[in-house]
Design a protein around this nucleic acid. Structure first.
Lengths: 224, 224
DNA sequence: CGCTCGGTTGATGCACATCAAAGGCTGTGG
DNA sequence: CCACAGCCTTTGATGTGCATCAACCGAGCG
């Protein structure tokens, strides 16, 4: 448990104290563990696998707001408020586990630990920066957005040069995240497959030439 | 000073303590008070007027990430970190004032006040929710985005039914915020002016029929 | 065995961007 | 005080990236 950044430097007993009343929840593929708009009594820490955080848009479809992988805190917003509803739904991507912690713990024990609060604030800040980065790309062409997404997904998971995405992801999910249709995603990515930049089988994506992706982000269209 | 949500419930001497070493900065129109990427030693609270928070995009132009009005905390991210750079530039919109507070104060005095930290966390959370809301509109047509922006600008300022935007804003700035060109913004808004939904002179915008705007957000195109 | 779901490909359309031009306003420097 | 440059606004003409629609294939699954 102390593997996770957020619990680093805590002893076993301290951790047990922080997590009192919590439980480890196992999810199969595509299980919904929180529901948008529901009264929020728990927050969570992702232990393994991944969860997508989605929000319904005006037109009805779900938009993916964030991909949460190992060590990420989900539903962190709701901790500081007395009554609150989940601002997103959380759905597992592939078999996953997360630690479900009652909100009360925050009021009772977490709140008294300034360092812990600051850590959470840092998590929130970095997620906010990601959202801002994405916002800054709103006018960018599709291939830039896809490249940026793939890179953000491998970066926030591991520092090693592993080039396989740590989660199964469909073209539709990519589209739901960056605001495009699955068809458009396919047109870009199958071209990349032909060029040997990426390799996909089913929903596992491997990046073969990561520097090409960085080129796309810098604005080089790739057709020269 | 205690008018502002964040300082509510604090006595004069407490506030003076929290703001020690700070100063009130007066800005004319379009003065840049923080610069993206600069080493961050201060954060701020907006006292009057407004500031736009911008970020350069890959292609060079600045994207507006947030409009900060009275009572808003700017550069709140940087408080918890020892060394950090401004994640955005801040530029005044019309004559404005903000309270410039040294980051050290956070380490020294703010940090020991759990309620204050939680208030800031709540501010961060609500800004994050705004970003998520906007992200959920990425596929929406332009008139929905503009309507949503206008409404968010009047809502976060005042609960009264005042229907004038609290800040001078150009079509280009609107475009820089929602990811569109000034020409496109004009085409939508001048149509609205003709229909008597809004009224603009120069950079002051008045909303005459706010329910029409809500209709647009719900997806009613308006041409029926 | 029919069902649904993900991936793929092609044809067509449209909402914007882009480009161009012109007028008004503001500030600035000769 | 005037000329000029730069920004904001507006309008029109043209172009295009991506959505939309439609169809097909293969795989998993009740």
């Amino acid at each position: 448990m102390s593997r996770f950044e957020i619990f680093r430097k805590y002893s076993r007993s301290q951790i047990l104290n922080l997590c009192e009343g919590g439980q480890i929840v196992f999810s199969r593929h595509r299980e919904r563990v929180f529901e948008f708009g529901e009264e929020a009594f728990y927050f969570g820490v992702v232990i393994s696998g991944a969860y997508k955080l989605t929000r319904p848009s005006v037109s009805g479809e779900d938009v993916i707001v964030h991909f949460s992988t190992q060590g990420d805190v989900v539903a962190a917003f709701i901790m500081a408020q007395a009554h609150s509803k989940y601002p997103v739904s959380a759905i597992s991507m592939g078999p996953s586990q997360f630690l479900k912690i009652p909100k009360i713990n925050f009021q009772n024990t977490w709140k008294n630990d300034v360092d812990l609060i600051l850590k959470i604030q840092n998590l929130l800040s970095s997620r906010m920066l990601m959202l801002q980065d994405q916002k800054a790309m709103s006018k960018a062409p599709l291939n830039q957005k896809i490249a940026a997404l793939l890179i953000s997904l491998i970066e926030n998971e591991t520092k090693v040069k592993k080039i396989e995405l740590p989660l199964p992801i469909t073209r539709k999910e990519i589209g739901d995240n960056i605001g495009a249709t699955p068809e458009s995603i396919i047109r870009v990515m199958s071209e990349w497959s032909k060029q040997g930049i990426i390799e996909t089988n089913d929903q596992q994506i491997k990046i073969l030439k990561i520097d090409k992706l960085f080129d796309f982000i810098k604005g080089n269209s790739g057709n020269d």
